[in-house]
């Protein structure tokens, strides 16, 4: 009746919900708050409480799903086939997840020392590894057929992986590009954006033309471009944004200024004072 999977997930769920209660109480709540899901107020730190509770509920939901629907449950399968256990269909080797997971853990550790952003990055990596690894382990022995197992895994994971990968790729480009632009000078940003666009367009034309000789060239250029954007992004993040001048509060009509005119009127501004002003 209660499969191993159920016990595992339900255990995790109960643990997480208990942790949420404790956390909600210890971070400054009262006794009724955490138990009534914050209905009567009195939960201490909301975000942490919310996350823990959410994860707990999700784990319990997975547990119930397992019991009710027995999706590709190896134990059930084994029962059905009258064997003790379904063997994994392929040896569990060649997985990169342990390495990536270790990298994530290391990032977390570094993040604890350095800053929160790095820590969260590590946390995300570890989370992704946990999910992917668990899905792989499960699907490896879901049925007796490797082909079917792979299809199973893809049916569940592809709808998550494809958009996530696409969004992540774009997010990296957007983040890196915007950091570089923020680091450049006002006119520099115009040039950088223009050059980037032209280079991308150029590589696109090269890649799409059917001359086979271009393959290596295109690959090389793409790598250079990728490294330039990524590296530039990281460097620009570390280096910080350029200095911006707060536009002086509006006194009279004035339009179409392009930055350099700002300093000319600086004296009729009042909030300008608390900003370091010098760009030229």
């Amino acid at each position: 009746m209660f499969t191993t999977g159920f016990k595992f997930f339900f255990g995790i769920g109960v643990g997480l919900v208990t942790a949420a209660m404790l956390y909600g109480y210890t971070s400054g709540g009262n006794w009724t708050g955490p138990v009534s899901l914050g209905w009567k107020e009195g939960v201490g730190e909301h975000i942490g409480y919310g996350i823990l509770l959410l994860l707990g509920v999700v784990a319990m939901a997975i547990a119930c799903t397992l019991v009710f629907f027995r999706d590709a449950d190896p134990a059930d399968q084994a029962d059905y086939m009258g064997v003790d256990d379904i063997e994994p269909t392929q040896p569990v080797t060649g997985s990169f997840w342990p390495v990536v997971g270790a990298f994530g853990a290391a990032t977390m550790a570094v993040g604890l020392v350095l800053n929160t952003a790095v820590f969260i990055t590590g946390l995300v990596i570890v989370g992704v590894v946990a999910i992917e690894w668990m899905m792989d382990a499960w699907s490896d022995r879901a049925t007796g057929d490797p082909e079917a197992n792979r299809a199973l895994r893809n049916r569940i994971m592809a709808p998550i992986e494809i958009p996530a990968a696409g969004a992540a790729a774009v997010a990296v480009v957007v983040l890196a590009a915007s950091r570089i632009l923020l680091n450049a000078s006002k006119n520099g940003a115009v040039v950088v954006a223009g050059v980037l666009a032209v280079v991308i367009l150029g590589i696109g034309f090269l890649a799409a033309s059917d001359k086979k000789i271009n393959r290596n060239l295109v690959a090389g250029l793409s790598v250079v471009l990728g490294v330039a954007i990524l590296g530039g992004g990281v460097w620009a993040t570390v280096d910080g944004e350029r200095e911006f001048h707060e536009h002086e509060p509006h006194g009279e009509e004035d339009h179409a200024d392009d930055g350099s005119t700002e300093d000319d009127h600086a004296d009729d501004g009042s909030t300008e004072a608390d900003h370091g002003e010098d760009e030229e």
Partner: peptide, 18 residues
């Protein structure tokens, strides 16, 4: 079974609700 490569007897409805 949606997945046709396997032996049907073994891979009885590998996905229940899904």
């Amino acid at each position: 079974l949606a997945l046709t490569t396997g032996d049907a007897a073994i891979v009885e409805r590998p996905l229940g609700v899904l």
